[in-house]
Structure formats: structure tokens, C-alpha cells
């Protein structure tokens, strides 16, 4: 009797898992690096700091590719791991395209050093997700040169 119950239990589990066997969830990005060039023309008068507090350049915007299961929603989180960075500087990210089957992420949000919710893909309906980065709170006090941080996107099943 006990063995039968175990077998029934295994069959139930297998039937739940069956539709997703042979599949995985994946996330990738088309650009291994993204460059934002702050222009010196943003200072129009000697004596002033940069006259804007935020800068974004989407001439070459990265695109995320997310795929998974047709019957499960996927959540994408974002965090950063600083390489050469200034604590006064903020980097933000958002989705740039409006699409059904995906929720959240359309307004710029600050990327921190720990995972934060970015957006949800509903049942594998959207795979191609263009994004844009914005840098904020910069100043000539940062000096000149390159600052860089590694931005990590993580997809997980809901």
C-alpha cells in the first residue's frame, strides 16, 4: 500500500514536470560592453558645472533576449558590480519598448549592488527587450576618464 502511494506521488510529480522537461530559461545580452560618452558641450559657460543632471545615449542601445516556458512567467532582476566607480554617481536602467506580455521596467530605476526587480515576462510572450542606461549625479568633480561597472541581469521563474 505504501509503495503504491509512493509511485502515485512520483507519477504526479513527473506529470507536473513533464511540460518543462527539455527546456531551460535563458537570458543574454547582445553587447558585452556599453559606452556612454558625456560630452564637454554640456558645459556652456566657464565657471559652471555640467548643466544637466542626467545623461543617456541610446544611439546603440543593448537588447536583452529572454526565453523560457510557455506556461510560466519569468522575473528579471538587475544589479551592478562596480569595477572603477564613484559612489556619487548613479546608473539607471529601463526598458525602451512598449509591449504586451511584459510588465514593469518602463521607468528608469537606479541599479544598486544587490538584485532588484526589473520586469516580468508573461509566459514567454516577449523575447526581445531593448533597454537603455542613464547616468545621473555627475560633475566635473568626477574628473575625466572612464568609470565602469558590470551590470548583471538575472532571470528566474515565478
Amino acid at each position: 500500500m505504501r509503495n503504491k502511494l509512493h509511485i502515485i506521488w512520483i507519477v504526479c510529480l513527473l506529470s507536473v514536470q513533464w511540460p518543462t522537461w527539455g527546456q531551460t530559461i535563458t537570458i543574454s545580452i547582445n553587447l558585452s560592453s556599453t559606452q556612454l560618452n558625456v560630452s564637454s558641450s554640456l558645459i556652456t559657460e566657464a565657471g559652471n558645472d555640467y548643466q544637466i543632471s542626467a545623461y543617456e545615449d541610446c544611439s546603440v542601445c543593448p537588447v536583452l533576449f529572454v526565453s523560457g516556458y510557455a506556461n510560466k512567467d519569468m522575473r528579471v532582476d538587475v544589479r551592478k558590480s562596480d569595477m572603477i566607480w564613484s559612489s556619487s554617481l548613479a546608473i539607471l536602467v529601463r526598458r525602451t519598448a512598449i509591449a504586451t506580455g511584459i510588465t514593469g521596467g518602463t521607468t528608469f530605476q537606479t541599479i544598486t549592488n544587490s538584485d532588484q526587480y526589473f520586469f516580468t515576462v508573461v509566459k514567454n510572450t516577449v523575447n526581445w527587450i531593448p533597454i537603455a542606461f542613464r547616468v545621473q549625479n555627475f560633475s566635473v568633480l568626477n574628473g575625466s576618464g572612464n568609470l565602469s561597472t558590470n551590470v548583471i541581469f538575472t532571470v528566474s521563474l515565478l
Binding site: 530559461i25 537570458i27 560592453s33 556599453t34 556612454l36 564637454s40 558645459i43 572612464n146 561597472t149 551590470v151
Partner: peptide, 16 residues
């Protein structure tokens, strides 16, 4: 049930 990818974001500040 979880996978990650990454991109390095670089900000270039000019000499002023």
C-alpha cells in the same frame, strides 16, 4: 530556474 548575463557599462568623462 535561474540564469544571468551581464554587460559592462562605461562612462567616459571628457577633459574640461
Amino acid at each position: 530556474a535561474q540564469q544571468s548575463c551581464n554587460t559592462t557599462v562605461s562612462i567616459n568623462f571628457p577633459q574640461i
